[in-house]
């Protein structure tokens, strides 16, 4: 079976001759959590944002396999790009909720790729979407918060809404860009646990950028270590030795 996401030779240069991503090759499928670890500036966020084209790659191909159809995301534009973006859900480091809208409206934002502007303005979403939204809110533990404004929520609660919003798209792949960096340790564990559980429940792969190696080891089925814009480790938690970590992050003091 083809993998849900296949990245081939991905290169990204923000400035000529200074590539941030130097040829990434990855195949991601199944329904587990893949954690991408590495120091800041090594291109983890760039990699994720190239997948859903929030950033445009300079070179390379990103294949998305949906229902037997294979599309190269890097070449899409306009309506086709938006149609493919619907298949990819994203969770952000700073939650990126629309603060002045309610929780329910934020969830329904996930369905904006499917409704017309006229319906969106009048907030006329298909009733099944609304029911799914309520069900998802219950799943993430925020059943009573549907009509609260998003800026009234705590960090952990906002991230749950962010995850629910991404899941509302019924995506084939779930991306998470440092979802726990703005959260306290206990909430971080809850969020990672939620991501893993929902990935398994929906049967989709979850790709998480994370800089907390312990969290990555605990929750990820597969670890991808990046350094200097390239993949230097691709395997499970057991194989991630201290030597490998030193190669990825450099320096020793933080390891003890």
């Amino acid at each position: 079976m083809a993998h849900a996401l296949e990245i081939e030779g991905l290169v990204k240069e923000y400035r000529r001759g200074q590539p941030v991503l130097k040829g990434i090759n990855l195949r991601i499928g199944g329904s587990g959590v893949t954690a991408i670890i590495g120091p800041s500036g090594t291109g983890k966020s760039t990699l994720l944002r190239c997948i859903n084209r929030l950033i445009d790659p300079t070179q390379g191909a990103i294949w998305l396999n949906v229902e037997g159809r294979r599309t190269d995301l890097s070449t899409l534009r306009g309506r086709a790009l938006r149609a493919s973006r619907r298949q990819i859900g994203m969770v952000f480091q700073e939650y990126n909720l629309v603060e002045r809208l309610t929780v329910m409206e934020n969830l329904l934002t996930g369905r904006l790729g499917y409704v017309s502007a006229w319906d969106a303005w009048r907030r006329k979403f298909p009733p099944q979407d609304v029911q799914n939204a309520f069900a998802l809110l219950d799943t993430v533990g925020l059943g009573d918060f549907a009509n609260q404004r998003a800026d009234a929520l705590s960090g952990g609660q906002r991230q749950r809404v962010g995850i629910a919003r991404a899941l509302m798209q019924r995506p084939q792949v779930l991306l998470a860009d440092e979802p726990t960096s703005s959260l306290d340790p206990k909430t971080s564990v809850e969020i990672m646990s939620l991501l893993r559980e929902q990935g398994r429940a929906q049967g989709i792969p979850v790709i998480v950028n994370i800089h907390d190696v312990e969290l990555a080891r605990r929750f990820a089925d597969r670890l991808v270590g990046m350094s200097g814009g390239q993949v230097v480790y691709d395997g499970d938690a057991a194989g991630l030795s201290d030597a490998k970590l030193k190669q990825i992050y450099g320096g020793e003091d933080w390891l003890s």
Partner: peptide, 13 residues
């Protein structure tokens, strides 16, 4: 796959 899971949620009257 995710479609199958979501559609298995109880459809309320």
């Amino acid at each position: 796959m995710s479609e199958a899971v979501l559609s298995s949620l109880p459809r309320l009257a």
